[in-house]
């Protein structure tokens, strides 16, 4: 379960950035609220890696409150990666869902 959560979480990050830019704290709070993270700090290494892999990019911007923030946004590559995952995930979860509900009976 932990592995599954871990695998899915990076796509949740990409999905949160689908329509809007966010800074790290906002992303972590969203994921926490959805019960997807146990240690909030562990999201930052993931963000760092997504950035290194070119799936997200960052810009410094003034925020409405507090100091300037590093905002994350999807790159074209990140968007493609997210779309592909959504496709696969839907097929996967439908297939699993069918078997979980029916116990495999036709």
């Amino acid at each position: 379960m932990a592995q599954m959560r871990k695998g899915a979480i990076e796509y949740c990050v990409l999905a949160l950035l689908r329509h809007d830019e966010h800074y790290g704290f906002e992303l972590v709070r969203e994921l926490s609220a959805a019960d997807l993270v146990t240690s909030e700090g562990t999201i930052y290494p993931l963000l760092s890696r997504l950035r290194k892999d070119g799936l997200v990019e960052t810009t410094w911007r003034e925020s409405t409150q507090g100091p300037p923030r590093r905002y994350y946004r999807l790159t074209t590559q990140g968007k493609a990666s997210l779309e592909a995952f959504i496709d696969q995930w839907q097929q996967f979860s439908e297939a699993v869902g069918r078997i979980l509900v029916s116990g495999g009976a036709k």
Partner: peptide, 22 residues
């Protein structure tokens, strides 16, 4: 504690470092 133990954050960082599929 909620943010996470430094060792755990570092472990997550190092595990993510090579970026290869699990």
């Amino acid at each position: 504690d909620r943010v996470g133990r430094p060792d755990d954050i570092a472990a997550a960082a190092l595990e993510d470092e090579d970026g290869t599929p699990r």
